[in-house]
Design a protein around this nucleic acid. Structure first.
Lengths: 249, 249
DNA sequence: AAAACACTTTGAGTTAGATCAATTACTCCC
DNA sequence: GGGAGTAATTGATCTAACTCAAAGTGTTTT
């Protein structure tokens, strides 16, 4: 059964303030080119896609779209950082994902039917995103079936990564979920430890991991006291990941 | 960082007992044809794919594959039911998904690199699956780029559904997670209530929802006492979904 | 039909984590 | 640099959910 949205009539104004600024700076373009959904595109097709897209500036905490809104676009992050979250009827805000520059989001909307956003998206700080019409990408794919391979790889990867996120959430203890989350943030292969930057403010990491901010804080304090992590603002240094994993049983 | 599997050296024997029985019964074939990953295929391509596949019989509780095993095949369920789960170092068994006849699983392996199963798969009862070589499907897609559209739709849908599963797991209270789970089991549009069959034994639904079987039992007993569900073995009758949703705040 | 087994339920005691409340630390403005 | 606002921490309860234990139910086996 589809869960009908009962709350959330707060925002009545249109959400987006689109700035029709051309997307031509080298950095942003380069980042777009290296994304799997675009890397295979030839110059002309990419150019055409960009021409149909708009560049959006978002301020701190600005909402990009709301859950259940008809979805005609998907997005590529040029700069800044965003988060995806849901609100339930009692107004509780549950963080589902954070998005960094170079990432796409809501790109599943290309194949969604009906196309409605499954969550809210807001900027965590001043950000820029490229707003790509779903239709434009569909058309492009249709006339170039060869591009589908790259898209397939991307979607399969996305499904795996969501599966993995789900896996963490089946861990019962809050402490162990947090530890698993930290381990996953470590760059792949950093068995000998390393520094990690939380992609979200601590209170939102807590929400992402289905625990209270106070619980998050206490667990982290405890890990710190046991010499398992060193904390410096949102930067954590994990000296011995193996020991951390052992702790989490 | 990749979490290296520490436990789990129990099963040393090969898992599969493959039966090279031809896949030609009308029912199974019909179900396969209606799956998005195969529905677009013309008769010849489908036949070729099936020829390269093997039909596997699995007994109750029989293991199909183990997590971290190299993945050269993906699967289509002909009959029975399976579940996907993970084991962590302390041997705790966490259920991630259940698979019904007509479903595919491990199909993301077609694009995985390196191809390793992310979890265990076992039969919940006597089942039959079609074991399809990843390579065979890849080859088929490569020579028929037009088939990619259907696959893309499938993968996008899969990603959405995993996202949705994740969303449920960010709900903090066990009670509310269970309610959300039940609501999702209801056929889409059954606002007026309906009967639902649990796709897993109760103790495994509990594991799927990151709670103890005792907790599951008590919550269900409580819902029953409040007239919100009627319970008959693994069949639940939900008379008033709206009220159930209201309860869960 | 009885025994063995697996799953579920119920009870009692304990604890991890939520909640409420207060303090401290940052960050952003003016 | 001071004040407002937000995020993070810490302390003190309280409760939802876990744990352990036992009994009940249904299913398969012999």
């Amino acid at each position: 059964m589809a869960l009908t949205q009962t709350a959330e009539t707060r925002y009545t104004k249109p959400v987006l303030v689109a700035v029709n600024k051309p997307f031509d700076d080298e950095d942003g373009l380069q980042a777009l080119r290296s994304h799997p959904l675009f890397s295979e595109l030839n110059g002309k097709d990419l150019q055409h896609l960009i021409q149909q897209s708009r560049r959006i500036r978002l301020g701190h905490h600005q909402l990009l779209y709301r859950q259940d809104m008809p979805a005609h676009h998907f997005f590529f992050v040029i700069s800044g950082r965003l988060r995806l979250y849901r609100l339930d009827s009692s107004g509780i805000d549950r963080t589902l994902d954070s998005i960094a520059p170079g990432d796409c989001f809501a790109e599943v909307m290309i194949y969604a039917d009906p196309p409605r956003y499954a969550c809210y998206a807001e900027a965590l700080k001043s950000s820029e995103v490229l707003m790509i019409p779903v239709k434009a990408y569909q058309d492009m794919l249709e006339s170039n079936p060869g591009y589908a391979q790259a898209a397939l790889r991307h979607y399969a990867k996305r499904a795996v990564s969501r599966f993995h996120d789900l896996e963490i959430m089946t861990v019962q203890s809050a402490r162990d979920r947090l530890i698993r989350y930290l381990i996953d943030l470590l760059p792949n292969g950093a068995e000998e430890g390393g520094e990690v930057e939380l992609p979200l403010p601590k209170c939102l990491v807590a929400s992402r991991l289905a625990m209270q901010p106070e619980t998050f804080s206490r667990i982290l304090a405890d890990l710190k006291a046991n010499g398992l992590v060193r904390v410096n603002r949102s930067r954590l240094f994990i000296s011995d990941p193996r020991r951390l994993i052992e702790i989490s049983q």
